[in-house]
């Protein structure tokens, strides 16, 4: 079967029975997405993953479409992942990074995006160090916005690829216990996963130093545990977050050594989880700080697989969001 034909079967897949298409203009976060939409993206990504595994990794589905990656923060995997996803699907793509753009000339974010829109972009993929940046842009432009990480808020494509990885390995997400360990406060990956996994029926348990847990986190539906051990206990999935070294410099932690002692994931702690536990990490990993090398490279680790799935998820999203382009009115100046 040709790659292009495959996509026609995407929507009759698995849990999603009806033929529906992602109807939103933007993908800003999983908090505001419903379960059906998530399922549709995951189903589509399965086909995309199949395409990725072929000798000829190319489909024509984004032919004539223009995807611009606007990155205000350094990124290797997310940016490359979006770029390759666009290319595998025959889109034109371009990358802009903050240092080389008019940002340094003082242009506002909204103006920059309007300019990109006028050059014919169909989708702007935006990564920004401030929470809500993608949301603010989305209100002001008609082009589709995909949030590739906004400050501490969300990283929806990471959340989706994590859920994809879990579903692929476990067959389902519903009813699983997923432990998220580390700096929850600053983590957009954690937020996207908490929203997404909860919607998909998983039980999310989080643990980390109390200075790195946001206030009233329990209201999100996540269970806040007092120790890593408690969170990992009988978990089906353990997700370890990257610890930014600057957290220690800002006084939120006494030392990285103590962090790895008390909150780092190691072989002993991982043993508390279920035998067939899935170990995940959004990368890049700090070996010996939040996770030990033996388990990061061990049999439970799916860290490398997450990277592959990331491309599939981004292909799926780009495909779904550009498939039925309509004229949308941006709600200007809310």
């Amino acid at each position: 079967m040709s790659n292009s034909l495959l996509l026609f079967f995407v929507n009759t897949h698995k849990e999603s029975g009806e033929n529906m298409a992602l109807k939103r203009k933007d993908v800003l976060g999983l908090r505001t997405m419903n379960q059906q939409e998530i399922v549709e993206i995951l189903n589509t990504a399965e086909t995309m993953k199949y395409i990725l595994q072929q000798n000829n990794k190319r489909t024509p589905h984004l032919q004539g479409k223009s995807i611009v990656n606007l990155f205000y923060e350094n990124s290797t995997r997310t940016r490359l992942s979006f770029e390759l996803a666009s290319k595998y699907m025959s889109a034109s793509s371009a990358n802009i990074s903050a240092s080389s753009s008019s940002v340094s000339k003082g242009e506002s974010l909204i103006d920059t995006c309007k300019t990109i829109e006028r050059m014919g972009a169909d989708v702007i993929v935006i990564r920004h160090p401030m929470s809500g940046a993608a949301h603010i842009v989305a209100k002001h432009v008609n082009v589709s916005i995909i949030n590739a990480g906004d400050g501490m808020n969300e990283h929806p494509t990471q959340g989706l690829l994590d859920m994809f990885t879990i579903r692929e390995n476990k067959g389902t997400i519903k009813g699983l216990k997923v432990a998220i360990i580390g700096d929850i406060y600053h983590s957009r990956v954690a937020r996207s996963n908490i929203w997404g996994l909860s919607k998909m029926g998983a039980e999310v348990a989080v643990a980390g130093p109390s200075t790195l847990l946001p206030i009233e986190l329990d209201k999100t539906g996540a269970k806040v545990c007092n120790s890593v051990e408690e969170a990992v206990d009988q978990a089906d999935v353990v997700m370890v977050l990257r610890l930014q070294k600057e957290r220690q410099q800002k006084g939120l932690l006494p030392s990285l050594r103590e962090y790895s002692q008390i909150y780092g994931l190691n072989k002993e702690r991982l043993k508390l989880a279920k035998e067939n536990v899935l170990l995940m990490h959004p990368g890049p990993i700090n070996r010996g700080i939040e996770i030990t090398s033996d388990i990061a490279d061990g049999i439970h680790s799916h860290i490398q697989e997450q990277v592959t799935n990331g491309v599939a998820i981004r292909m799926a999203l780009l495909y779904l969001i550009t498939r039925q382009r309509r004229k949308y009115d941006a709600t200007v100046y809310q």
């Binding site: 908090r31 929470s131 809500g132 906004d150 400050g151 501490m152 808020n153 969300e154 957009r188 937020r191 946001p214 206030i215 009233e216 986190l217 209201k219 999100t220």
Partner: peptide, 13 residues
């Protein structure tokens, strides 16, 4: 304000 909404929006409270 620091509270559930700041946690939800990922904004510093």
């Amino acid at each position: 304000n620091e509270g559930y909404v700041s946690t939800m929006l990922g904004l510093k409270g």
